[in-house]
Design a protein around this nucleic acid. Structure first.
Length: 539
RNA sequence: GCGCCACUAGCUCAGCUGGAUAGAGCAACGGACUUCUAAUCCGUAGGUCGGGGGUUCGAAUCCCUCGUGGCGCGCCA
């Protein structure tokens, strides 16, 4: 907003000084000054264009500053400093006007213009062979936050969960359930080592037995029963952390029973990227950017998971999505290059295929890793964690780290209600503001004849509010929701500090200050909602 | 052996599309409740940005190399 205006002013000035220079406003970087003595905003333009303009940065800076200062009513001061930075001190009244503009359109503030093209965002996609656990949780929180942020930024996004309901693991799931059911009926059969050993199958077996007779152990029936049951559990778990998918895409239905697999094979064959070796059918991914070739049809004539994956991603684009984003666990990173290579060979869409890789999460208690339960040999499930930690805390903490770094989820920290817990810290700021507004007794804030607020803290807060727009852009374009969490913590911090230093009720400039904190409150709660976190009015 | 990710304060991490004296939270230490919610605030201290080279006006950021750790390298999914 203000940055854009400054950018425009530099652009005009440089054009006046050098009429033959070819630059765009996008070449001009305006950053917020880190130090008070450097004003509000700064640019490195003179260093950047020193060579192009064949002039020393410092001389260039002097020229530009002199020119900008002519007929200026926007800045309190503009100056330059070695080696050639230009610093801008903006008038407090400009900040106040900007605040007012934001306040007037607060509900949509920070949201972007409608963007062209449709995006398909796939995340979680855990196999329906068990409950969701810690790793899925981070994927889910990051994926859903990205989804919300992209939509807020103006993108048309559909979210999708790929149900891996075909193949060996589902067969094994059905087989495991069958054994559990027979165990219940007194048959002494050992579970094979590769079977699904979790206790949940015993529970499912009990339910199954109560619905069907003892001899009803058809493998298809068992498979479907277990799969449907677990899928419902997965949906329930996701719902419990405010996550809902637009599409549930079934591998068996949409890929295997639809003829899609043969269609893809024909296409690849026509494109001459397949070959036969050792009774199997291979794809020449090594010629399209991957390090290896891979098998698509095994020697027993069954298809590989990779072929399904190619078909699935071909179908994603075929369904009309312009951009496809996958949120994947980093243990699948080797699939990225092969999938990109196959898309490259198939339809050249690999440049529209994006990946967010999620690194591992560990659950720490007393400094020890308790991710894996020793008793059951299973990873901590979402249900387990939610029974210990507040929903909001879980959602927030899971996106506070850049997704490509390992993350330790510290249980002790999350159980505390104090300053160690960033979620409460932000929510508390929101609740405090709400309390002030309520106590003021003013229902409709007037925007007429306002006082100008110009303390360092107040101008700083307005600047922080202005930053929200950039943070959304940054988070959306980099698919990085953690940037938003840091921003919100900082905004809350600046508010708490202001709260302590400046009494708002029974003081002057009341109306402007109420507008300021109301705006902050909206940014805080809108920001939290983009992370799937609530903002209670009272705490 | 190859590939991906990481390495920044005692701990957990931002910053990485090159900019000014490298930031935050926690922990440590010292302060602030007749005051709109102390789930808060103010202050002090804390650094060879894993090591070494290079690129340039300028490098935590880009390139090369080495080291450490995590994860992958199936006719499994």
């Amino acid at each position: 907003m203000i940055k854009k205006i400054i950018k425009e002013k530099i652009y005009q000035t440089v054009n006046t000084l050098y009429s033959d220079l070819q630059i765009n406003t996008s070449d001009i970087d305006i950053v917020e000054s880190k130090k008070i003595e450097h004003g509000d905003y700064a640019t490195n333009f003179c260093m950047k264009f020193s060579k192009t303009l064949n002039q020393k940065p410092i001389d260039l800076a002097e020229l530009i500053v002199d020119e900008i200062k002519k007929n200026d009513d926007f800045f309190d001061n503009v100056d330059f400093i070695k080696p050639g930075f230009i610093n801008f001190k903006v008038k407090a009244s400009i900040f106040n006007d900007t605040l007012l503009n934001i306040y007037r359109t607060i509900d949509s503030y920070g949201s972007g213009d409608t963007k062209k093209g449709k995006i398909l965002l796939e995340y979680v996609s855990a196999n329906p062979t068990g409950f969701l656990h810690l790793g899925h949780l981070r994927n889910a929180a990051v994926g859903d936050s990205i989804c919300r942020i992209l939509r807020f930024y103006g993108h048309d996004v559909d979210s999708e969960y790929y149900i891996n309901d075909f193949g060996n693991q589902i067969k094994l799931l059905g087989k495991s359930l069958g054994i559990r059911v027979r165990n219940l009926h007194g048959e002494n059969i050992e579970m094979p080592e590769d079977a699904y050993l979790g206790d949940y199958l015993v529970d499912i077996a009990k339910k199954y037995s109560s619905e069907f007779s003892q001899d009803s152990l058809d493998s298809d029936k068992l498979e479907n029963y277990a799969k449907d049951y677990l899928l419902q559990e997965i949906k329930n778990d996701l719902a419990s952390i405010n996550i809902k998918f637009d599409n549930w895409y079934s591998e068996s239905k949409s890929i295997h029973n639809s003829g899609l697999l043969d269609e893809i094979l024909d296409k690849l064959s026509d494109l001459n990227v397949l070959y036969d070796k050792d009774d199997a059918k291979w794809i020449k991914t090594s010629e399209y950017g991957d390090s290896n070739d891979w098998v698509l049809i095994k020697s027993d004539k069954s298809s590989t998971y990779f072929l399904s994956d190619i078909a699935y991603h071909y179908d994603k684009f075929n369904r009309g999505y312009d951009k496809v984003i996958n949120v994947w666990g980093s243990d699948h990173h080797s699939h990225v290059s092969r999938l990109k290579a196959s898309m490259n060979s198939l339809n050249n869409k690999e440049k529209n295929l994006y990946f967010v890789m999620i690194q591992f999460v560990r659950l720490l208690k007393d400094g020890k890793d308790i991710s894996m339960s020793k008793r059951s040999g299973q990873y901590t499930t979402i249900k387990d964690l939610l029974s210990l930690v507040d929903n909001d805390v879980v959602r927030f903490m899971m996106v506070t780290r850049s997704s490509d770094t390992h993350f330790d989820f510290d249980l002790d920290q999350c159980l505390k209600d104090s300053d160690e817990n960033p979620v409460f810290y932000i929510q508390y700021a929101n609740a405090r503001i709400n309390s002030i507004i309520k106590k003021s007794g003013i229902k409709d804030l007037s925007t007429q004849n306002l006082d100008v607020i110009d303390s360092i803290k107040e101008v700083g807060l307005i600047k922080a509010v202005i930053d929200f727009e950039d943070v959304i852009k940054d988070s959306a374009e980099n698919l990085a929701p953690h940037k938003l969490t840091f921003y919100l913590q900082n905004l809350a911090k600046e508010f708490h500090s202001y709260y302590k230093s400046t009494k708002i009720l029974n003081n002057d400039k009341l109306m402007t200050r109420l507008i300021l904190i109301t705006t902050i409150k909206s940014v805080l709660s809108n920001g939290l909602s983009l992370l799937g976190v609530s903002s209670p009015e009272e705490m």
